[in-house]
Design a protein around this nucleic acid. Structure first.
Length: 576
DNA sequence: TGCGCGACTTAGAAACTTTCTG
DNA sequence: CAGAAAGTTTCTAAGTCGCGCA
């Protein structure tokens, strides 16, 4: 395994050699010298429906123009999804659909409720069934074709390295699926064409060819950025990019740098904590607000909380954008003093609910911040992320609000691993401990998931397995007893067998019960995000080395590729 | 000082694939 | 060997944060 980038110089050493700009890059900002790639893969062209698949309006068959039909199929494909029952989704969809209709269609189709997409929907279901039912050979053929496209478009050449591209396929058109109460859900996400695409590559590279008869919007040669392809998306007007895989040098170095910054925070976090505690007493309100917000970011691993344009996105908040309505103060609650109750929607409209006791000073400050305010007023009216980050930058080079999340996540993993791992345990038990440590971090960072649709059912299945196993155990015990009691001759051997059976069944039962606990504890918790984005992989690698756990038990193939730098670098005594 | 933009990281859902179990 | 469960990959939305401009 060769390292994707040299490790003779640590990022820290490099930093002392070159002056850093504000965002942590080198002042020259050059990301590569040479970049060559084949451009994006476009979404397949629309294939009109066969004529027997009909659309009905108000009970009557109606043949749609190809443009209107395509948009109708987007809705038909989502018919079983909850989205299509939501008013905003339906309203946005219908408005955008009507724009794609001919004037005749527009005149006729005035009510979405009268549209019958049933045949279309059934047709797509049948198609997906047919795909599942394909023969091995047919499936193999498709797999090979995908592999061919991957080989052709899935890699690029960056500074003498062949690198995997993360998302070389352009997003296909469809209906926008915002998270939570998104005001734009259901809008038409339009098809991206070559003339929408900006290509980025080096001057001395072979510029990718646009499809025959088309042109790129622009070809540029900007080595201060890492993207290969970009286009502007029509829902929010934001820019989308094609970039490299996490296993690439450019992503790996950045990741490494992120953890090194978090480790530098470790060295000065005591000082920073002492400072913000002092600032709770400041005579200036803006300083007190800054200090209380930073306390939340540090203690609760909240996100920074940028301002958002009202009405353009779902109403979600982070620390700096908390409103009065998002917290409740309890001078006393369940035997604890100065309790703050948080209840708000964070990133991806995931609910953050927490009750925490805080220092008296924090509590008094919060009362002050909330005085004479309406529920929808900002809690920190003298603060925003820009002010906070400017302050943090002064406390430590490269420090921003998100560094606290990385730091607290990684340090928590390290502590938990130390606490939970015991030498006597076997490998599965150690892995359970690792997962528990991982879970502690996921809880800290509030990484939640919707309980799987089949959760209740699979839990029931598991429970009936446990019940059956209990019965089986009872039977086995009874048999053991009678074997002991009645047999006189060859008693020993029979009893021994029965005893073994009892032990085996007890073990199986235990395993099932652990599995049930584990699954229950993980019901609403997503472990992947912290593992991939917050936990310094060197902590995990060191832990594996220390306890003789194969690293494959902790990281799958993709994860090992992403963390190749750490696997190669960390020894068993690595300390975050 | 505020604002919009651009580039990048972080996020959970859904689709797909592999493994387990009865 | 089928169906369920678990694991993995793909997809793309939604954040963070710095910069330049008025």
């Amino acid at each position: 395994l060769s390292l994707p980038f040299p490790r003779t110089l640590s990022p820290k050493k490099q930093n002392t050699k070159k002056k850093r700009s504000g965002n942590g890059e080198y002042t020259d900002g050059v990301k590569w010298k040479f970049l060559e790639h084949k451009g994006p893969v476009f979404a397949p062209a629309y294939e009109p429906l066969p004529s027997h698949v009909k659309f009905y309006y108000d009970g009557k068959h109606m043949k749609l123009s190809p443009e209107a039909e395509e948009v109708a199929t987007f809705f038909a494909k989502m018919l079983d999804h909850e989205y299509t029952t939501k008013d905003i989704f339906r309203k946005n969809f219908f408005k955008d659909w009507r724009k794609e209709m001919t004037s005749e269609e527009r005149a006729k189709l005035t009510d979405l409720k009268k549209c019958d997409f049933g045949e279309m929907s059934n047709y797509f279901k049948a198609q997906s069934e047919a795909r599942k039912a394909m023969s091995k050979e047919e499936k193999q053929k498709i797999k090979e074709e995908n592999e061919r496209i991957l080989q052709q478009y899935g890699f690029c050449l960056m500074d003498n390295h062949k690198e995997r591209i993360a998302n070389f396929r352009i997003e296909p058109p469809g209906l926008f699926r915002g998270r939570g109460d998104h005001p734009k859900m259901g809008m038409l996400k339009r098809r991206i064409r070559p003339q929408d695409i900006i290509i980025n590559c080096s001057k001395d590279s072979k510029v990718p060819e646009p499809p025959p008869g088309t042109k790129w919007k622009e070809v540029r040669h900007d080595n201060k950025v890492t993207w290969l392809v970009s286009w502007t998306e029509n829902i929010q007007g934001s820019i989308k990019y094609i970039m490299l895989n996490p296993s690439s040098r450019i992503k790996g170095e950045k990741d490494w740098q992120k953890y090194e910054t978090a480790r530098r925070l470790k060295k000065c976090v005591d000082r920073i904590r002492a400072q913000y505690r002092e600032d709770w007493k400041s005579k200036e309100m803006r300083i007190r607000q800054r200090a209380v917000a930073l306390y939340f970011i540090d203690k609760l691993a909240l996100r920074a909380g940028n301002e958002k344009e009202e009405g353009e996105t779902a109403d979600t908040v982070g620390c700096c954008s908390l409103r009065v309505e998002h917290i409740k103060l309890y001078p006393e609650n369940e035997g604890q003093e100065y309790v703050v109750e948080f209840d708000f929607l964070g990133k991806d409209s995931i609910r953050y609910y927490n009750r925490v006791p805080v220092e008296k000073r924090v509590f008094k400050n919060l009362q002050l911040f909330m005085e004479n305010k309406e529920p929808d007023d900002d809690l920190f009216d003298r603060l925003n992320t820009s002010i906070l980050n400017k302050h943090l930058q002064e406390l430590m080079d490269g420090l921003t609000a998100k560094v606290f999340r990385t730091y607290n996540a990684s340090i928590t993993l390290q502590q938990q691993l130390k606490e939970l791992t015991t030498a006597e345990e076997n490998i599965p038990a150690k892995i359970l401990s690792y997962n528990r440590a991982n879970r502690a971090v996921a809880i800290l960072c509030n990484h939640q998931r919707a309980p799987p649709k089949t959760f209740e059912k699979s839990m029931q299945n598991l429970q009936s397995k446990i019940d059956a196993k209990r019965d089986q155990l009872a039977d086995a015990k009874r048999e053991l007893k009678s074997a002991k009691a009645d047999a006189k001759v060859r008693k020993d051997e029979k009893s021994k067998n029965k005893k073994k059976a009892v032990q085996r069944i007890e073990e199986q039962l235990m395993k099932l019960e652990v599995q049930a606990t584990d699954r229950e504890e993980n019901k609403q918790i997503a472990l992947g995000t912290s593992k991939l984005n917050y936990l310094d992989p060197r902590i995990s690698v060191a832990w594996c080395k220390k306890w003789g756990i194969p690293v494959e038990k902790i990281y799958n193939k993709t994860q090992r590729e992403k963390f190749a730098w750490a696997i190669d670098m960390a020894e068993d005594d690595y300390e975050f």
